[in-house]
Simulated assay, not measured.
Amino acid sequence: MDNGGDYQTYYNQGFTLIELLTVIVILGILMSIAVLSVLGVTERTETEVCEANRLELGRYYRVHLIVESKVHTSTAFKEFMLGYGDEICPVGGEISYDDRKVECSVHSVAANGNDEGDDGEVPYL
């Protein structure tokens, strides 16, 4: 009967250091995956919000030019922006109007250097 008592006291002592470290490492890996995915979602959301705001601003600006019978100039756009507000880009990019499009210094295609013909590979010489 003594063997049964030793068996019970041995397994009632709690977790070993290896078991605790294993659980902590697994939780750390899961947390790093979660943080990286949340950061990616946040960045995509900021880009989408900026794009939607720029499209809306462009429409309002074109209507403003028609209603006021004005021609686009950088001064006319700056005056329009004073009345519209500064919160177009969620990360504070500089807003400009070029070639009938509202551009952001952070989120626009030209600002990121993404050309449609560029597939990200090294060119063959």
Rank of each mutant, 00 (worst) to 15 (best):
M1T: 12
N3Q: 11
G4N: 10
G4F: 08
D6S: 08
Q8L: 15
T9D: 14
T9Q: 12
Y11M: 11
N12V: 07
G14E: 05
T16L: 05
T16Q: 02
L17C: 06
L17K: 04
I18A: 12
I18M: 09
L20D: 01
I24Y: 00
V25D: 13
V25C: 12
V25W: 00
L27Y: 09
L27M: 14
L27F: 11
L27Q: 11
L27P: 02
G28L: 04
L30H: 03
S32V: 14
I33E: 06
I33N: 03
A34S: 11
V35W: 07
V38K: 10
V38Q: 13
V41G: 13
T42L: 15
T42Q: 14
E43M: 12
R44N: 14
T45G: 14
E46I: 12
E48W: 06
V49Q: 10
C50N: 04
E51M: 13
R54N: 12
R54M: 15
E56F: 14
L57K: 03
G58L: 02
R59K: 15
R59V: 15
Y60M: 15
Y60T: 15
H64E: 10
H64C: 10
L65R: 05
I66F: 10
V67F: 05
E68R: 13
E68W: 06
E68M: 13
S69A: 13
K70R: 09
K70M: 08
H72A: 02
T75K: 01
A76Y: 06
A76G: 06
A76S: 05
F77N: 03
K78H: 07
F80I: 01
L82Q: 05
G83F: 04
G83M: 03
D86Q: 08
D86H: 03
I88V: 09
C89D: 03
C89R: 02
P90L: 04
G92F: 01
G93P: 00
G93C: 01
S96R: 00
Y97K: 04
Y97M: 04
Y97A: 04
Y97F: 00
K101E: 12
K101R: 11
V102A: 08
V102Y: 06
V102C: 00
C104H: 02
C104A: 02
S105C: 04
V106R: 05
V106K: 08
V106W: 03
H107L: 06
V109N: 13
A110Y: 01
A111T: 01
A111P: 04
G113Q: 06
G113H: 03
G113W: 07
D115V: 08
D115T: 09
E116G: 11
G117V: 03
D119Q: 04
G120N: 00
V122F: 13
V122K: 11
P123Y: 07
L125G: 10
